[in-house]
Amino acid sequence: MFDIIFYIFGAITVGGALVTAFARNIVYAAFSLLFTFFGIAGLYIMANADFLAVTQLLVYVGGILILLIFGVMLTSRIGTVDIRVGTGSRWVAGIMALGLFAILCAAFFGTAATHTEKSADGKSQVVTSWATHATRPWSGSKWNQDATTEALKPKYGAPDEVKSNEGSSGTSVEIGTLFLTDYLLPFEVISVLILVSLLGATMIARKEPTKEEEAIAESVSV
């Protein structure tokens, strides 16, 4: 059942992306992007990333895509424009894309097959699912998770090794904690980044006053 839903979402994502890439009409392309974003949100939910899924819906579907569609619809006669360019190199591009796809497939399937880790009862087993790999990142490395756990134990008791979100309150609490602990610096730098973007957006988008208007504005303010 889980697999079937996964494939359904996967098909929606890939199908939407294919239509976006190959549509002759930009309106179709914009709308099919909706399916891609929606499918990705579904995949996030299946990977237990509920917060990410909601953000995906809010930001991409609710914000960026709506803006895109408005932009397309408010631009006159854009629907008749053939947006595909450079048909001559389409075969080359196709072959390159397929080649890249093959390399990526080889890389990922190769990874899943060679990775082994210890299960709860101490036996080592081959892990074939990529999703479980990240649960014990430090296994076998110099700094193993156990030392960390030991350090934290007297304070909080042993934290769960595998942070599964099944039946929990979701990932948003953990994301929030990480933002203000491990990822404090990136979190703060992003706020500078957003301020820069705002400043730049106003600087670029604002209508420039003429020389006379500027002179009037200055005389009023002084």
């Binding site: 960390t148 934290l152 491990d182 404090l184």
Partner: peptide, 8 residues
């Protein structure tokens, strides 16, 4: 700004 939750 080390990883605070893991204290490494």
């Amino acid at each position: 700004f080390p990883y605070m939750t893991t204290l490494i």
